[in-house]
Design a protein around this nucleic acid. Structure first.
Lengths: 110, 110
DNA sequence: ACAACCTTTACACAAATGTGGTAATGTTGT
DNA sequence: ACAACATTACCACATTTGTGTAAAGGTTGT
């Protein structure tokens, strides 16, 4: 069918190896649908994902890990909030005292 | 002085090893100031950073890497924007065609 | 039917992470 | 002065990441 690729074809068209396409799927970064016989089927959307992922990686020297972690941040808003809080407080060291102070006050008020 | 700790004291007070405190500094996660003789000086702010980093890590099973990457995302808004774009388009596979279309239009307009 | 694909599973390996040591040397508090 | 700290610079090691390759077998197009 036009615009559908098996793993080898998608590899050739995207610049990744077939091996890496399977790895990317395992990491949850680019997950193709499957044919009735379990063949991986990549469409145009996945092709674009693959191409731009490759460029992102080169341009910013990212690990795949980092991209997977960014995906996790979107899936887990608590985690993102907790990390943002830590980073914000770290950026402004003085704020830690306030933060602890407020925590202390919360405990007293309870 | 009250509220200031050398690396060993900070380690004892935070639950990290002195070795790890040096490693955290090297990764840019918790960077103490230095005395005139280059001793690391941790204040209350850093102590709180260390304690809450430890808890963050346990609670969400984070790698230090991941925290360092989250810090990078705040420092590099382009990177964050690029990643968010990729993730948003990946979440909604159909949008890739539009995204490529818009990129094409941007290039033509330039 | 046969070549050329695909599947999963596994072994292999270099590089990086996270963590602990040690050694040689400088600093500090009593 | 001396014990108990600190510094940097290494070595070591298990685990993870990213990547290739191979085996044993199923699918597909001609």
């Amino acid at each position: 069918m036009a615009g559908t690729y098996t793993v080898g074809a998608a590899a050739a068209a995207s610049g990744w190896s077939a091996r890496m396409l399977r790895y990317l799927e395992q990491q949850g970064l680019v997950v193709p649908r499957r044919s009735a016989t379990c063949y991986r089927i990549y469409g145009l959307g996945e092709l674009n994902q693959l191409r731009s992922l490759k460029q992102l990686r080169r341009q910013y020297e990212l690990e795949l890990d980092d991209v997977a972690f960014a995906a996790r941040l979107r899936r887990e808003p608590d985690l993102k909030a907790a990390l943002d809080g830590w980073l914000a407080a770290s950026a402004d060291s003085g704020s830690w005292i306030d933060w602890e102070q407020r925590k202390h006050e919360r405990l007293l008020a309870a």
